[in-house]
């Protein structure tokens, strides 16, 4: 019998705790498949954030660190500077990376720190119960923007890839999505490119992945995929914002 599909070596057998329909599981798998395919499992060190993916250290079957809220890029810097040949990556949500940890990710990018950042943007704080995030869309209802996001109370959403692309430091910046099989395949390619860039010592790589949060968006999983496509894509256009040689 030929095995055509199996759990990646870089994932443990532990069941994900993520809510039904949440796309964190897909993104975990894409990262794990990439690490497997590039033969990096035994030389990888991952950094889990604070947020929904705080328990990522239980799911990735490789050396893992848990970091304080927002500081994963600084922690990754500390690891990479000791182990320059290891594949060092962070896995961060939008609250972790774009609110409390904005300074750390920007300065890691400015240093051209040779690490890979997997940035999961689902436009909301998931773990704490659906509060407004820096990436929450205008008008979007959250538990701390009950009337919908408006500038006076909550300011404007942040476009992380576009912001970082104004600087010299980053080597690779890409925004992808996982709301359809075709997009999942493209997301995998971007993740792979980011890790390849790191192993070629090209410097800082970040892949922003648009993701769903059915529980806190108050939608069923299918409607969430539609909402991502219809509402998030216009605000967060997909594409490569910094590419090799570009």
């Amino acid at each position: 019998m030929k095995i055509v599909a199996k759990r990646p070596e870089s994932l443990t057998s532990k069941d994900f705790h993520y809510c039904p329909g949440c796309t964190h599981g897909i993104i975990h798998r894409l990262v794990a498949e990439t690490i497997d395919e590039l033969g990096l499992r035994e030389s990888a060190v991952g950094i889990a954030p604070v947020g929904c993916s705080v328990l990522a250290y239980e799911y990735f079957n490789l050396d893992m660190l848990q970091a304080s809220h927002g500081r994963a890029p600084a922690v990754a810097t500390g690891v990479k500077r000791v182990l320059p040949d290891c594949a060092v990556f962070t896995y961060q949500g939008d609250g972790d990376l774009a609110a409390i940890g904005l300074s750390e990710v920007v300065h890691a990018a400015l240093r051209g720190e040779n690490i890979t950042i997997i940035f999961v943007n689902n436009a909301i704080y998931g773990m704490t119960g659906g509060q407004i995030a820096p990436t929450t869309l205008m008008g979007q209802v959250t538990t701390t923007s009950p009337g919908g996001r408006e500038v006076g109370m909550s300011g404007n959403p942040i476009k992380v890839c576009e912001m970082l692309a104004t600087q010299q430091g980053p080597a690779y910046l890409s925004r992808v999505s996982v709301h359809s099989p075709a997009h999942v395949r493209r997301a995998k390619k971007a993740i792979r490119k980011a890790f390849e860039m790191q192993m070629q010592k090209k410097g800082f790589s970040l892949v922003e992945i648009l993701s769903t949060c059915p529980t806190n968006w108050g939608m069923d999983p299918l409607s969430s995929l539609d909402w991502l496509e219809e509402e998030m894509l216009p605000m967060y256009p997909l594409g490569e914002f910094r590419r090799p040689g570009g």
Binding site: L65, S68, A74, G78, K80, S103
Partner: peptide
């Protein structure tokens, strides 16, 4: 580093790596 907060977390990372 960009801040004291970043510095101590870089310390955390390097210490974790031995």
């Amino acid at each position: 580093s960009e801040s004291e907060v970043a510095a101590i977390n870089m310390v955390y990372g390097s210490s974790s790596a031995g």
